[in-house]
Nucleic acid binder design. Structure first.
Lengths: 194, 194
DNA sequence: TTGGTTGTTGATGGATCAGTCCAGAATGAA
DNA sequence: TTCATTCTGGACTGATCCATCAACAACCAA
């Protein structure tokens, strides 16, 4: 055929994701993106369509990666409840830079979900993915007798997702690791029976 | 002296607040603001300095109003725990439009707290205001025997604030009132002793 | 009424925005 | 080597961004 692209599509999406994650959608210029991606203007437009399409692709990638990480962490724990604890405590254990960067999923919801139907759609599917993951691990915890059997895994799963998002907002607001641990600790008491 | 302004400063800040609340900072143009405020360009610059100053003033106003509302609601309940319950359930009881609009405080943190020190500063003072309000009511609840005396009011207060923020993010992500009630209900179990 | 001051208005500034065009370079197949 | 195809990079577009300027209008004190 003809001349092949000089860049790795996956790699440049990753770099674009980092910029959008850091700065948000509106505050990111195409110039910012091109510099970070290390490609030319036309290459970006040819490959991704426009800034919005690139954002959607980056967001999709973010969700896939962080969703997979959540599932992995929930299964890697030495017990279901410990795994949940570790997921919640993980935010508090991040570096200050990581806590400040926050969560691209949360940012996309807050900035764009109201005006961009595709972002809203991604938000919903992301919610379902995370809720389901939490639901599975809570059910597992019930099966193992780690939490009371009268616990409603659906409700608790929703609660845990909301807690993670609350933690991320608090972290961005400058909460100390101690404050974040407090929040996680109290949230965890919702599991211990009742 | 000289010619007085033709508009009410308080009123135009209120209108600007509504626009920033709805669209965020970056996505709001000065044109949007002027149209909503019903004043001329120069009047805006003379009165508020620039777009950023106007935003900061609008945010400050939002925080003062919503902080006062929180304190009021917490004191108006028929009992401390009921008051907390009502505050959490209030998000689920909002209209779809209100839920979609979200919380300007959360939006400001997510969009701007990292790059604007003054927003970060407002975020911190807002956090303290809300945490303190929650802390007081939890202490009151302990005093009345509504929650176990071994509950740490500081930690629970932090948790409750995080829960409200989690609820607001979930609401913006399109969660149903039922899902929001689930989250609030589970969060409330953290109060019931332990 | 007049003078000094301040508010309002419309025109306009340069900067930057997202996105397009085009000429030239690089590629692989024939 | 030749040719069709595709990628690349710089110049460029019109729109929009935030902000300023200058001329005019409105006000109050004297």
């Amino acid at each position: 055929m003809a001349r092949p692209k000089e860049f790795d599509r996956d790699e440049v999406v990753k770099r674009a994701m980092a910029v959008f994650w850091e700065k948000g959608y509106e505050a990111t210029s195409t110039e910012d993106l091109l510099r970070a991606m290390g490609i030319g203007r036309q290459s970006m437009y040819d490959t991704f369509g426009d800034k919005r399409r690139l954002y959607l692709e980056a967001l999709q990638r973010y969700q896939a990666e962080s969703g997979a990480q959540l599932i992995e962490r929930l299964q890697a724990g030495e017990s279901p409840v410990r795994a949940i604890e570790e997921v919640l405590m993980a935010v508090a254990a991040e570096t200050p830079a990581e806590r400040a960067r926050g969560c691209m999923y949360v940012s996309s919801i807050v900035e764009l979900a109201q005006k961009d139907p595709e972002v809203a759609s991604l938000a919903k599917s992301g919610t379902i993915l995370c809720e389901t993951a939490f639901e599975r691990i809570v059910r597992e915890a019930k099966r193992k007798g780690e939490v009371d059997r009268c616990v409603d895994e659906r409700k608790v799963a929703r609660f845990l997702l909301a807690t993670v998002q609350g933690l991320r907002v608090m972290a961005k607001a400058g909460a100390t690791p101690e404050a974040l641990r407090d929040i996680a600790a109290v949230a965890l008491t919702s599991l211990k029976s009742r």
